[in-house]
């Protein structure tokens, strides 16, 4: 289990995250929702050990991640970034092979190549193997980045808005892929999301952040209520239940001047 306890983080004097508590079990998908600038990315960076929290703890399978070597951490937790800013051409196979870094001493071994080709195979990406990463579609890129993280053979996966640059079909495909990966490989997935409906449809639990604080954390049906949406996003919204999933229909932005207290009461 990935456990986050009383986590706080400040940039200078600005408080970005305050008293965050979160558990992610293996095989489970958790979405972190909230408006822009609410601290979602900061939370993910803390989980990946890229930045050190000011207080609180993060434990992965009962080990403190701050005390791990970066290689050890990379074997436990994979990261799927939003973009891949390479200016140099690179084959898809080479891109996925990067995920073997925590296991490579000097140069990738036969086993590393084997793992990469198996990952490509299992994600139906092997026809892309020797293509240039820059010349495949946005949806394919996202899948390749996920494949790279899977090649790390991690227990947990952190994704930064995996659906943000994709068309509707690819959004569903990528989410479906993550869902299957979580179950099949028994990986705990935590992802920052913008789309409320994709999060509701594909997550086991949703954590809502608002100005650095956790507003609520529960199943999509528990969390997706007009009141919570109103509190967090300052919008008026209807929730409809289709096939057992809550779907949010945003209606109007709320006037800015109402205080949080009024909203919560």
């Amino acid at each position: 289990m990935l456990q986050v306890g009383n986590l706080s983080f400040n940039y200078g004097k600005t408080c970005v995250l305050k008293d965050i508590n979160l558990n992610v079990k293996k095989g489970e998908i958790i979405s972190v929702l909230g408006p822009n600038g609410v601290g979602k990315t900061t939370l993910l960076k803390c989980l990946l050990g890229m930045i050190k929290p000011c207080s609180g703890f993060i434990e992965m399978d009962e080990m403190d991640i701050l005390k791990m070597s970066s290689t050890h951490r990379a074997r436990l937790i994979g990261y799927v970034p939003q973009a891949f800013p390479s200016k140099f051409p690179m084959t898809v196979f080479d891109a996925v092979l990067m995920g073997r870094k925590p296991y490579v001493r000097f140069v990738p071994s036969e086993n590393d190549l084997e793992v990469v080709s198996q990952v490509l195979m299992s994600m139906n990406l092997n026809h892309l193997g020797l293509k240039d990463f820059d010349r495949i579609s946005g949806g394919q890129k996202q899948k390749v980045l996920i494949a790279r993280a899977i090649a790390q053979e991690p227990n947990y996966l952190v994704l930064d808005e995996p659906s943000s640059n994709l068309d509707v079909r690819h959004q569903l495909e990528v989410m479906d892929m993550l869902r299957k990966l979580a179950q099949k490989e028994n990986i705990g997935i935590i992802m920052a999301m913008h789309s409320l409906n994709l999060a509701s449809r594909f997550s086991d639990r949703i954590a809502m952040l608002k100005s650095g604080c956790m507003v609520c954390n529960g199943t999509p049906l528990e969390v997706m209520t007009p009141k919570i949406i109103e509190t967090v996003y300052k919008i008026e919204a209807n929730i409809h239940r289709i096939n057992g999933y809550p779907y949010t229909i945003p209606l109007n932005p709320m006037p800015e001047n109402r205080t949080n207290k009024e909203l919560l009461n």
């Binding site: 890229m50 070597s69 990379a74 990261y79 200016k87 925590p102 790390q152």
Partner: peptide
């Protein structure tokens, strides 16, 4: 070449 953050997350100093 694929970005500092993701290289860092893969264990590169």
């Amino acid at each position: 070449t694929a970005g500092d953050e993701s290289a860092g997350a893969l264990g590169v100093n």
